[in-house]
Design a protein around this nucleic acid. Structure first.
Length: 508
RNA sequence: GGCCCGUUCGUCUAAGGGUUAGGACACCACCCUUUCACGGUGGUGAUACGAGUUCGAAUCUCGUACGGGCUACCA
């Protein structure tokens, strides 16, 4: 049997796209591409009360930034669409009713209040959260306890009701997880999950099974938090479509924060991004900065995420998307959760910046500079600057501090550092240095340095005493790449101009 | 509480019965560098605990502890 690989990612437009979500997409994507299959995105908006307008587009923007574009647009119904669950409502009803007909599901007429009462009444120290299970369902109002006539009457009166799966009494459900191997569940401990809600929308449980079947999904990867509800999904496959048709499951380990499952709160508390891109909480209006806006390269973001729970068995840590597609293997994914380490994340980004060609970084850096009012006219010049400073930039905004002086003459200088040691000899030195520079034929770092060193020797002053002031003259402070490289890029005119301007400051 | 999953340096991890338990981040020291970085060399640092199987266990089995997840008409 040569099945075509189709994997799907199913984000819910109720919150931002966080680390765990992107990694799930990434593994889906890598697996699909590796097997020359399709990667599709299905949108889970079954809970209309938590639905956030615009979130779908946000998620898609994140995927686009990260380079993980689905093969079928989730917004236009293709052969297997629509992909938005709210647009598939009638489909779910049909299958839910089928389950009732087959005796695998039943109508339940309990109101939310009644359910709450039940949970309170049966709550005990040993059982803090009573389940709607094979014992309790006998005590509730549903098509199992009511007479056929009563049920018909309630239905004809349009009484609010849900459809629940009827979990079999004593059965062991087993399946093979691609990461964990055989997993077993005892049905006597699983509750009768709601499949179709009172508003006619499906729950995740029904939707995921029906959609995976109709969309011909062959492999389903999701977070480990779904493992406990896997038996419900297995049962639904068995009742509806047959186990042979069921996709292979892989439950991915969780990405942990400093304490437990990584949450939005962790980002705020510990000062690192948890979302791919900026996300504003719709209720609190609180903005969470994304990896993109923080200045991460998408290549680095993908790279660090891929390595959080997987490695290829070698000591290689830096991978391109292309390499990941070739080398990824679901069998090598860890079963244990991984704690996110922001320091290591920054290291990945630093590596990617260092190893990127200047023209790869050009437009990002240009935008950054222009946003701050620096005008960048010459792309060749900009690339030279990037090449010179990139190894000291960990995140993109670092380019601002490291390179802005290449585009604007400093307005102030670190006078305090220079002034105490500033004297007439030094003043004279720089005056003759300017004279020599004017005569210099080849304007490059090496020749300027030779000239400088020669002059230093002639004047019998220590080089260090002069190198430091020169740096501050050129950039304004104690930072930046090697001084003579700066002079080379700045050019003769600008270099001399800055030395003159700064000297005046030091004199006063 | 019940069920499920997990446990190798502080963190991410390698090692699939025999290794001085390897690498990376972080940290420390030194070298390079008359700034800051990059780079180089070295260092501190781990198999949760207890039994069992075995000539031999991080590795297989069981128990304990700890961590995490789930236990909604959320996903």
């Amino acid at each position: 049997m040569n099945k075509r690989v189709r994997v799907r990612f199913a984000p819910s437009p109720t919150g931002g796209l966080h680390l765990g979500g992107v990694r799930t997409v990434l593994y889906n994507y890598l697996f699909a591409k590796q097997h020359k299959g399709d990667f599709i995105v299905r949108i889970e908006d079954t809970d209309q009360s938590r639905y956030v307008a615009g979130a779908e587009q946000y998620i898609f923007n994140c995927l686009n930034w990260a380079g993980l574009v689905p093969d079928e647009s989730p917004f236009n119904a293709g052969a297997y669409g629509p992909y938005r669950q709210s647009e598939r409502k009638p489909i779910y009803r049909k299958y839910a009713e089928q389950l009732v007909q087959q005796g695998n599901a039943y109508y339940a007429f309990d109101t939310p209040e009644e359910l709450e009462k039940m949970r309170n009444d049966f709550k005990s120290a040993e059982n803090p959260s009573p389940q709607y299970d094979l014992d309790l369902r006998k005590k509730m109002r549903n098509s199992l306890t009511l007479t056929e006539e009563e049920v018909r009457k309630l239905l004809s009166e349009n009484t609010k009701h849900v459809i629940r799966i009827k979990i079999p009494e004593k059965e062991t459900i087993s399946f093979t997880d691609m990461i964990r191997g055989e997993v077993h569940f005892d049905t006597s401990l699983v509750d009768d999950k709601v499949l179709l809600k009172a508003d006619g929308m499906p729950t995740y449980h029904l939707a995921v099974v029906v959609d995976d079947y109709l969309m011909k999904i062959t492999h389903a990867f999701r977070g480990e938090e779904w493992l406990p509800s896997a038996p419900v999904h297995i049962l639904l496959w068995k009742y509806l479509f047959g186990l042979e048709e069921m996709p292979q499951w892989a439950h991915l380990p969780l990405i942990l924060g400093p304490s437990g499952k990584l949450s939005k709160r962790d980002g705020a508390t510990y000062g690192f991004p948890v979302f791919a891109m900026n996300w504003t909480d719709p209720t609190t209006k609180e903005l969470s900065e994304g990896f993109k806006e923080k200045g991460f390269l998408p290549e680095a973001f993908i790279n660090l995420l891929a390595l959080l729970g997987w490695n290829d068995g070698t000591e290689q840590e830096i991978f391109t998307l292309e390499e990941l597609i070739n080398k990824f293997s679901i069998e090598r994914v860890h079963s244990g959760g991984a704690k996110f380490d922001y320091e290591k994340a920054k290291w990945f980004n630093h590596e990617w910046i260092k190893h990127s060609e200047a023209d790869r970084l050009r437009s990002e850096v240009k935008t950054l500079l222009e946003e701050r009012g620096f005008s960048v006219r010459d792309d060749v010049y900009l690339e030279k600057v990037i090449e010179l400073v990139k190894e000291r930039c960990i995140v993109l905004p670092d380019f601002l501090e490291q390179s802005s002086f290449f585009f604007k003459t400093p307005e102030s200088w670190d006078v305090e550092t220079v002034k105490p040691k500033w004297n007439i000899e030094k003043k004279i030195f720089f005056e003759s240095f300017i004279q020599q520079l004017l005569l210099l034929k080849n304007w490059n770092a090496t020749d300027i340095e030779i000239l400088f060193k020669k002059l230093v020797t002639e004047n019998k002053i220590k080089a260090g005493e002069l190198l430091f002031p020169l740096r501050i003259m050129l950039v304004g402070g104690k930072f930046g790449p090697p001084v003579f490289n700066i002079t080379e890029l700045l050019g003769k005119e600008e270099t001399i101009k800055r030395i003159k301007l700064a000297s005046i400051q030091f004199d006063s």
